[in-house]
């Protein structure tokens, strides 16, 4: 069964249309990337899927069921989002424990803190961080908290919006390893938004290249590794990333 199915998705902010007829299918257990420049509409698609934006037409199906943007609670039990900036996406005056318990409270799930302990373990954070505030932790640790929060409702689908671009390379490596491990352990499906092709190569099976709100090409990881793109723009993006590479 497919985890995500987009059929002719159009998204507009008031009168400006930002996504034009996007269609794609992400299989269950797959890791899929949306790549493109800023303003190409990749994050917009992510927001539409998780119900943060309901101004779209077309069809979004999650695990075979049509998404109703008015029913956010249902969506969030299936899919959760991790944002780019771990400095901005955690509430500065809530402890890790409160942050992680909140989704459970919202969804009326009774739990005596076991799941908080479980998820902290899953993301490799020591229990002593449980009652800390975000400002008492490093960027990498905060991103681990953000990932733990997304996992609290045991979703099947994770929507990752540039999860490592605000981090140093060495910290990025830790988070990428963690994401890869989590996918294996918990059998998750990833939809990752990024502009960093090497990250796609490490974490994803397939990718869609977007330009000005349109999906111009869908390629596999092998194609990416060899640079075998059909579309001229994908080629350009590939070479731009390659340009910075030590020959």
């Amino acid at each position: 069964m497919s985890a995500i199915e987009l059929n002719n998705l159009n998204i507009a902010y008031s009168s400006v249309q930002v996504v034009h007829g996007a269609s794609l299918t992400v299989n269950e257990g797959e890791s899929f990337a949306l790549v493109g420049e800023s303003g190409s509409g990749k994050s917009t698609i992510l927001k539409a899927i998780c119900g943060l934006n309901d101004e779209w037409t077309g069809e979004i199906k999650l695990y075979g069921e049509k998404v109703d943007p008015r029913n956010r609670a249902d969506i969030s039990r299936i899919s959760q989002m991790v944002f780019q900036d771990p400095y901005g996406s955690l509430h500065p005056r809530k402890t890790v424990d409160t942050t992680l318990s909140e989704p459970l409270a919202i969804h009326g799930i009774k739990d005596n803190g076991d799941r908080v302990v479980e998820m902290l373990n899953a993301v490799g954070l020591d229990q002593r961080y449980r009652f800390r505030f975000p400002h008492q932790m490093s960027g990498g640790q905060r991103q681990r908290v953000a990932i733990a929060r997304a996992l609290m409702l045991k979703p099947k689908l994770m929507l990752l919006d540039e999860p490592t671009s605000a981090l140093d390379v060495s910290v990025q490596a830790e988070i990428l390893n963690l994401l890869k491990q989590l996918r294996k352990d918990q059998n998750l499906t990833y939809l990752l938004v990024t502009h960093d092709l090497p990250v796609v190569s490490f974490l994803c099976d397939r990718l869609a290249v977007m330009k000005k709100g349109k999906i111009v090409e869908i390629a596999t990881r092998d194609q990416l590794a060899k640079g075998e793109f059909n579309d001229a723009y994908s080629q350009e993006l590939y070479h731009a990333s390659k340009h910075e590479y030590v020959a």
Binding site: V169, A173, N177, P198, S201, F202
Partner: peptide, 20 residues
């Protein structure tokens, strides 16, 4: 060396990235 190794490559084959 650690910094260089921690960077994913565009034709990545490693299962896990080395961390510092």
């Amino acid at each position: 060396q650690g910094l260089l190794a921690a960077m994913p490559r565009i034709d990545e084959t490693r299962e896990e990235l080395p961390t510092l």
